[in-house]
């Protein structure tokens, strides 16, 4: 047994899954808290991540899409690999492992007083949602909010009740949703996120743009924002790479001399300009 007094950053705590919600055919939200219902193992700031583990199978770094006070941590997880596939099979009451919080999180303070433009694709809305909900919670601290979000299809849109009901009702908030290909019942916009962004052409004045999505989307969004007059200090993105330790030791998530798990996952475009274009 562990004899010394040192902290054990690589050993997870056990939490209980108190609710599971289907977001899309391949994305589920998992709501976790301490076993038995007493609070949370740790606080997670908007944009921070945690290593979520179905212990007999593996661990995956997942951005926390929302912390509701001391009630729950919510992780929206897409089924893509071994661990996430197993996680999608579990039922409410299952104990899972959690360690964190990891990463720097969004610069919520530095963005105060600004208009906010959120641009997300697919599961990329999950990390941004923590910032979006933070803005709504502290509504008077932020200016106008625009959210541009797209997915492959209507079924693949995450957090539909918020997208179509709750968020558009918020003060000074506009939500623009697009899907990649036309569908019979879909009356909204059809097309990819970057082109929709250019079409909407939101003003860069006093605005911070935050984007997350598939790498190809991020790349085109960054180009579009540049064209629209956003400078590198006005653009924030979150990156991801394969991770194992989450604490800047195991080596694999480096971009140049920075580790996404520790120094990221949130970067200003100005910071990325100094790093190798490897994301």
């Amino acid at each position: 047994m562990h004899k010394c007094e040192c902290e054990q950053p690589l050993v997870p705590v056990i939490v209980e899954v108190m609710d599971i919600k289907d977001e899309t055919p391949d994305i589920k939200s998992f709501f976790v808290k301490n076993p038995g219902g007493n609070g949370l193992p740790f606080n997670v700031a908007p944009g921070q991540c945690a290593m979520v583990s179905y212990l007999p199978v593996g661990e995956s770094m997942i951005s926390c899409t929302w912390q509701e006070e001391q009630e729950y941590l919510q992780f929206a997880i897409k089924r893509v690999g071994l661990m996430t596939d197993e996680l999608h099979q579990i039922e409410v009451g299952q104990k899972i492992g959690l360690r964190g919080p990891y990463g720097n999180g969004f610069p919520v303070e530095a963005c105060k007083g600004k208009d906010m433009l959120f641009i997300a694709g697919g599961i990329g809305l999950a990390p941004l949602r923590s910032f979006i909900k933070y803005c709504f919670k502290h509504r008077e601290d932020y200016g106008k909010i625009k959210i541009i979000y797209g997915s492959r299809s209507y079924a693949d849109l995450c957090f539909k009740d918020e997208l179509f009901e709750l968020w558009p009702q918020q003060k000074d908030t506009e939500v623009f949703v697009t899907i990649d290909n036309a569908e019979e019942a879909w009356k909204g916009h059809v097309g990819f996120v970057p082109s929709y962004l250019e079409e909407l052409n939101p003003s860069s004045a006093g605005t911070i743009a935050v984007t997350c999505g598939p790498p190809i989307m991020i790349n085109f969004v960054l180009k579009a924002l540049e064209k629209m007059g956003y400078n590198d200090e006005q653009v924030i993105t979150t990156l991801e790479m394969r991770m194992k330790c989450g604490i800047g030791k195991c080596g694999r998530c480096n971009i140049g001399s920075e580790y996404i798990c520790l120094d990221g996952p949130v970067f200003y475009l100005a910071q990325l300009r100094d790093l190798p274009q490897e994301y």
């Binding site: 054990q8 104990k95 492992g97």
Partner: peptide, 21 residues
């Protein structure tokens, strides 16, 4: 080795870690 894992239904336990001093 880092830590033990024991599963019983939905319960899961880590009752040993293996720091070696």
């Amino acid at each position: 080795r880092m830590y033990s894992i024991k599963q019983e239904g939905q319960e899961i336990k880590i009752d040993k870690t293996f720091e070696d001093s």
